[in-house]
Design a protein around this nucleic acid. Structure first.
Length: 498
RNA sequence: GCCCCAUUCGUCUAGAGGCCUAGGACGCAGCCCUCUCAAGGCUGAAACAGGAGUUCGAAUCUCCUAUGGGGUACCA
C-alpha cells in the first residue's frame, strides 16, 4: 500500500434516469474518499454507443448534487486528469490495446458474430460451457496481416492464462480465487474502435490515480479478467471493494429499473432517484437510509448526520451480503427528519411543494400550517393530502355532504344542533386561539350532552371537508373567526330540509 | 450446466471463540395519551438455514448440503 491520497470514483453509464441502487454505490465511494480526506470523482462510462440515452448526464449530476455528493473532478468540474468522459479518451484506449497486442498479452480476433453463435451452439449440443473457442489466438502474424489487408473487421481479445488460478483480494470479501480454465478471452476493444468496460475502466483508473474502486458485486465474475489486465499492463492495481447488491424488497432478484417491484402493501417500489425527489423525500434522510444498507453506524444508532457517517465509515466494515431493499424504513426515517427540522426550515421546503400541487403557496400561510402538520407527515407531499385545503381558494370551498358531517352515533337533528350551537359560541368568542377554543368547545360538548369526538369531528369535517386533517382548533385559529363561522354556516345549510 | 458471492428476528442490521438466557431499528400487536390522523411513552411476539467436525467452550473457525443472489455479450 502506498501513501498516495485516496481517490475513489463513481463511474456510471449514461443509460437513462439514475437508479437508487446506483446512488448508494456512489454514497459508499464518496463516504470512503471523504473519510480518508481524499478525492471523489465522477467519470462517465459511455463506451456503448447503442445504450446512450440523451440527458443522462444531467440525471446523474442532478442526483449526486441532490444528495450532497459533491465530486472533486468530473465532466463539469475541471481537474488534472480529464477528460472525464470515456468517449473523449478513445485514442488512449486504442494505444494501450495495441501495446497489449505488441507485448503478446492480447490478440486481434476476426471471428464474425455468426461464427461465435455457431461455436456456442455446438458447445451447447456437446453440453460444454459456452464461450469463445480462442480460434484467433493462434493466428500467425502473416495470417493476421492477410485478414487486415482484406479489410476484415476485428476485435481485440485478452490472452488469458489457460491454467492455474487467478488470485485476488477484495476489501469486503477478502481473498478470492478463480480457476483460469473457466475464464474467457474477453473482448477489450470492439470492432468500432471503442474499448469495452474492462479495458477502459482500468486505463482510466490507472491514469486518474484511483486508489480504491467501489462497484457492485455483479462485477465479481469479471474480477479475474481485470486482475489479468492490470498484471499484463504491469500497473499497480487499486484496492477493490465489491459492494453488496440491493435486492427487491422480497429478496427476489436485484432491484432493477426495468422490472417493477412492489412492497408488501402492494405499493410500487420507487426506483429512479427522480421519483424519490418528486415523492418528497429529503436528501439527508435518503442519505442516512442509503448509508444504512450494508453498513451501519454502530452504537445502535440509526439516525446520523453526513459528517458523523464520514467520521466512521470504512469500506472494510461493509456487510458482504446482498440486502433486500428496506423501503418502509425510509418512510420512518424521512418522518424523523421532517420532525427534527425547525418549522421555518420545513415551511421553506413546503412552499414549492404546495406550488407544484397547483395551489396558492402563500409563504405566510404555509408558515402557520407547518407546525400543526409537522408530526403528521412522512413525506413532503403528504402535506398536500393533510392540509391542502388551506391553500385552495377559500371562496370556492364547498360544504361536505350531510352524511359526511354526521358522526358516529349521531343523527341529522343532533348534528345540525351541534353546528348551530357552535356558531353561536364562536360568535361570542373573544380570543381565537386554539387553547381557548378547545376549552369552550369542550364545555359545549358537555352542555349538548355529546362526546367530544362527536362534536369535534363534525366541526373538522365542516371546516376541512376531510375526516383526517390538522387538529380542529388549530385549524380554526388559522382560518380565523370569519372563515370558521362562514364554513360552519355552509355546513348547517346542508341540513336545510331538516 | 459452469464460475463467484452470501446465509442472525418478516426486513435492515450488531455480533470478529466464552461478555449471547443473541443487542438495536423498521414493520407488526397490545396498552397509555388523545378532537381525526400522527407523534410520543411503555410492553410484547419474532432469528443464529441444516448436518458433520475443531475446541474445555461456536452465531462466531473448517467441511458438506440446502437455499438465495450474481455472472456466463463486440452491455455496463
Amino acid at each position: 500500500m502506498s501513501d498516495k491520497p485516496v481517490r475513489t470514483r463513481f463511474a456510471p453509464s449514461p443509460t437513462g434516469p439514475m437508479h437508487i441502487g446506483n446512488l448508494r454505490q456512489a454514497v459508499f465511494g464518496w463516504l470512503y474518499a471523504k473519510h480518508c480526506g481524499g478525492q471523489f470523482l465522477l467519470r462517465i462510462e459511455d463506451t456503448d454507443q447503442k445504450r446512450y440515452v440523451e440527458g443522462s448526464l444531467e440525471y446523474i449530476i442532478g442526483a449526486l448534487r441532490w444528495l450532497g455528493l459533491e465530486y472533486d473532478e468530473g465532466p463539469d468540474v475541471d481537474g488534472p486528469y480529464g477528460p472525464y468522459i470515456q468517449s473523449e479518451r478513445l485514442p488512449l484506449y486504442q494505444e494501450w490495446a495495441q501495446w497489449l497486442i505488441d507485448n503478446d498479452k492480447a490478440y486481434k480476433c476476426f471471428c464474425t458474430s455468426e461464427r461465435l453463435e455457431q461455436v456456442n451452439k455446438e458447445k451447447k449440443a456437446r453440453k460444454e460451457p459456452p464461450g469463445y473457442d480462442r480460434h484467433c489466438r493462434t493466428l500467425t502474424a502473416d495470417e493476421v496481416a492477410a485478414k487486415q489487408a482484406e479489410g476484415l473487421p476485428y476485435v481485440v481479445r485478452m490472452k488469458m492464462p489457460l491454467d492455474g488460478v487467478t488470485k485476488g483480494h477484495d476489501i469486503i470479501l477478502g481473498d478470492v480465487e478463480f480457476p483460469n480454465d473457466t475464464l474467457q478471452d474477453a473482448v477489450i476493444l470492439k470492432s468500432d474502435g471503442f474499448p469495452t468496460y474492462h479495458l477502459a475502466h482500468i486505463i482510466d483508473d490507472h491514469f486518474m490515480e484511483i486508489t480504491h474502486t467501489t462497484r457492485g458485486q455483479e462485477w465479481m465474475p469479471s474480477f479475474p479478467l481485470h486482475i489479468n489486465i492490470w498484471q499484463a499492463l504491469g500497473w499497480e492495481m487499486p484496492q477493490h471493494a465489491h459492494l453488496p447488491l440491493i435486492l427487491n424488497p422480497n429478496g427476489q432478484g436485484k432491484l432493477s429499473k426495468r422490472k417493477e417491484a412492489f412492497d408488501e402493501s402492494g405499493q410500487r417500489v420507487l426506483i429512479k432517484v427522480s421519483e424519490y425527489i418528486e415523492a418528497g423525500y429529503l436528501p439527508d434522510a435518503t442519505f442516512n437510509f442509503l448509508a444504512n444498507i450494508g453498513w451501519n453506524f454502530g452504537e445502535d444508532k440509526e439516525i446520523f448526520t453526513v459528517d458523523e457517517a464520514i467520521e466512521r465509515f470504512d469500506l472494510k466494515d461493509v456487510n458482504p451480503a446482498n440486502a433486500a431493499f428496506p423501503v418502509e424504513k425510509l418512510d420512518w426515517l424521512n418522518g424523523q427528519y421532517i420532525r427534527d427540522k425547525a418549522p421555518e426550515t420545513l415551511a421553506g421546503l413546503l412552499v414549492p411543494v404546495v406550488a407544484k400541487a397547483g395551489l396558492n403557496a402563500d409563504p405566510e400561510l404555509v408558515g402557520k400550517v407547518t407546525p400543526v402538520a409537522q408530526t403528521r407527515i412522512k413525506t413532503l407531499n403528504e402535506f398536500i393530502d393533510l392540509a391542502g385545503f388551506f391553500f385552495r381558494d377559500w371562496a370556492e370551498f364547498e360544504a361536505p355532504p350531510a352524511d359526511m358531517l354526521i358522526q358516529k352515533k349521531m343523527d341529522t337533528v343532533g348534528t345540525k344542533r351541534c353546528l348551530e350551537a357552535s356558531i353561536t359560541v364562536l360568535q361570542a368568542a373573544e380570543t381565537f386561539d386554539h387553547a381557548a377554543l378547545y376549552k369552550t368547545f369542550k364545555d359545549l360538548a358537555q352542555e349538548l350532552d355529546v362526546k367530544n369526538g362527536q362534536l369535534f369531528g363534525a366541526l373538522r369535517v365542516a371546516l376541512t371537508g376531510q375526516t383526517i386533517s390538522t387538529p380542529t382548533f388549530e385549524t380554526m385559529e388559522i382560518f380565523g373567526k370569519d372563515e370558521t363561522i362562514r364554513r360552519l354556516e355552509m355546513a348547517v345549510a346542508q341540513f336545510a330540509d331538516v
